[in-house]
Design a protein around this nucleic acid. Sequence first.
DNA 1: GGTATATGTAAACGCTGTTGACCTGTCAAA
DNA 2: TTTGACAGGTCAACAGCGTTTACATATACC
Lengths: 199, 199
Amino acid sequence: MVRPEETGGGSAPARGREATRARILESARELFTSEGYGAVSSRMIAAHAGVNVALINRYFGAKRGLLTEILREDGVFPGLISGDPGTLTRRLAEHAVGRLYGEGTALQRALDHSSGDPELQAVYEGRLKSAMLEPLSAYLGGDEAPVHASLVAAVLLGLTRVRLIEGATALRAHDRARLTDRVQALLDLCLADFETEDE
Amino acid sequence: MVRPEETGGGSAPARGREATRARILESARELFTSEGYGAVSSRMIAAHAGVNVALINRYFGAKRGLLTEILREDGVFPGLISGDPGTLTRRLAEHAVGRLYGEGTALQRALDHSSGDPELQAVYEGRLKSAMLEPLSAYLGGDEAPVHASLVAAVLLGLTRVRLIEGATALRAHDRARLTDRVQALLDLCLADFETEDE
DNA sequence: GGTATATGTAAACGCTGTTGACCTGTCAAA
DNA sequence: TTTGACAGGTCAACAGCGTTTACATATACC
């Protein structure tokens, strides 16, 4: 009796492998979103997925492997660093303010919120480097590009951090617009040529 | 036989209490500095201090209590938010850049480095609120003060974070001066009156 | 003396992430 | 049909963590 069950190929891609993997991943995403990375244990994920704990490490190496997988799908600052350079800072400011004070993904907010976890940090920072600093630096070009990119990243990351510290204060539309303008101005200053008028 | 041993008072200040407390605190400070908060366990601190583990919780409530105590002594941005308002941003910029790219305390650097720990985060953020956001806001005064303070904090925190992500790149004196100027300009912009020229 | 009260100790609790040994069902070849 | 290989899944254990509880001990007061 061959169990057909969506095994189209004839070789040996296994029966439950992909399904189980997906189930674990989905459970992890849900729990990370609702509870935060640090507050979710391997056993919680396993229980939620109806799966044995050992399978998490079998399929993802370790708990952080889950996060790496999730972050890869749900990119950080996706697709903003491209297009018209003239409006780059505007787009970044709008995205940042929107994400922090408006319509950010629940997952994004959850990951931002636990962005300090020592475990998460390595993954998060790796993503940020490869998805923000490096492309932005390449996008800007020139000798000063790395510094400019770092400053931009600093402003954006700092906003996230302060936002977390201050808590979830809602912002009226008008104040949000003002904040966005101010952030854009800061980003513009980060990117501006900047000649110190000293000797 | 009364053990004199610096027990001047006659009531009941105990014999080993202060000494033990101090020993634990000193061990914690050393280990946090050299290893980072998350990498140091209660048992490591106890062993280093030559003391039973339970005493840590007896004297400091919990591991985070040690950190609270250490942070209270070694303030964050100590004494900068006062004096001539005209040079405030200069002082902050110099302090921040100096701390991150120059002569910061080893402990400061270590705590910055583990500033993401979920446990540490609460303490760290509490300190930052009470030692940075609130005094700065009060210092600036006015309706917009909280927003300005938040932006300043964002820039300073963001610099820390990016610095950690990028790693310990040494900066030549000239580049450090340029960075300081740029940061000061950003801080000035954070504090500037900012009228959006829309309708 | 006796006795209350600090101070220090040993052992455990429940939790974490992770791993190794063990079943179990499916498939291919003999 | 019997045999073997093997992927998929389970179970129990490991060492470590922060923390707590019950206990021993030394000190200080009456």
